[in-house]
């Protein structure tokens, strides 16, 4: 076990340039940026298709192709085309995050009880009001499930940004590999794993806050998981 912890608990690794706090902030910055862009692109698309009930087949097909896209391939390709910088990893991570967000928004809104939507139209709501005040709040468990799943994949995969010369916790994995320094590699890997679990816990908490209490009893015994 010393192999796993000797580097991790060495205080000199916890401060200064290239220290764990700095790498952690970089890692979270890539994650947040990619996730934000993916939400801006994926959520409206999924919501629109879910609301109009048109093009669902195309959307699900597109999401599946994107899901099968190898992130490492996209990353290296964009580096060769656009050069080293923030663009390649963010592009690759955004493509990774779009499918679950888009599919979650689509599935959630599409599955809102037609009776509820009809009632909303019946009391005189405009289409915009139906979408924002009825469909989106009712679809929140699935929408948020998609975002959570995307966040988890992005925080795990942001590790590979270091492969093309950027920072983040992946730095330790690839530096350790290059230097044949296993404790450093393992330390980086453990940090990424702990971060992923923490992100999952925080988002589970946030989900409780954003999902209307009125929807809670509807949850089946297993809850919304991937």
């Amino acid at each position: 076990m010393n192999l796993l912890t000797s580097w991790l608990f060495d205080p000199t690794n916890w401060s200064g340039t290239g220290g764990i706090p700095q790498r952690l902030v970089e890692h979270l910055w890539y994650t947040a940026l990619a996730l934000a862009i993916a939400i801006v692109i994926g959520f409206p698309l999924g919501a629109l298709v879910g609301h109009t009930k048109r093009g669902g087949f195309v959307l699900v097909g597109a999401a599946n192709v994107l899901r099968a896209l190898p992130t490492v391939g996209v990353l290296t390709l964009v580096v060769l085309l656009a050069g080293i910088g923030l663009v390649p990893p963010i592009a690759a991570l955004t493509l990774l995050a779009i499918p679950p967000i888009m599919a979650g928004a689509y599935a959630g809104i599409q599955a809102v009880e037609p009776v509820v939507v009809d009632a909303a139209r019946g009391v005189g709501m405009t289409e915009r009001e139906v979408l924002f005040q009825v469909e989106i709040p009712n679809a929140m468990p699935l929408i948020f499930g998609g975002v959570r799943s995307a966040a988890l994949q992005v925080v795990a995969t942001a590790t590979i940004a270091a492969y093309v010369g950027l920072g983040g916790l992946g730095r330790y994995v690839f530096d350790g590999l290059a230097l044949h320094d296993y404790p450093q590699m393992a330390g980086g890997a453990i940090l990424v794993a702990v971060l992923a679990v923490l992100v999952e816990l925080v988002l589970t908490g946030v989900q409780r806050l954003v999902v209307s209490p009125g929807l809670r009893p509807v949850r089946t015994s297993g809850g919304t998981q991937r």
């Binding site: 796993l4 994995v173 296993y182 590699m185 890997a189 453990i190 990424v192 794993a193 992923a196 679990v197």
Partner: peptide
Amino acid sequence: TIPSLALIVILPA
């Protein structure tokens, strides 16, 4: 929840 690259790296230990 544990990232794949992390697990691949930690397993040997």
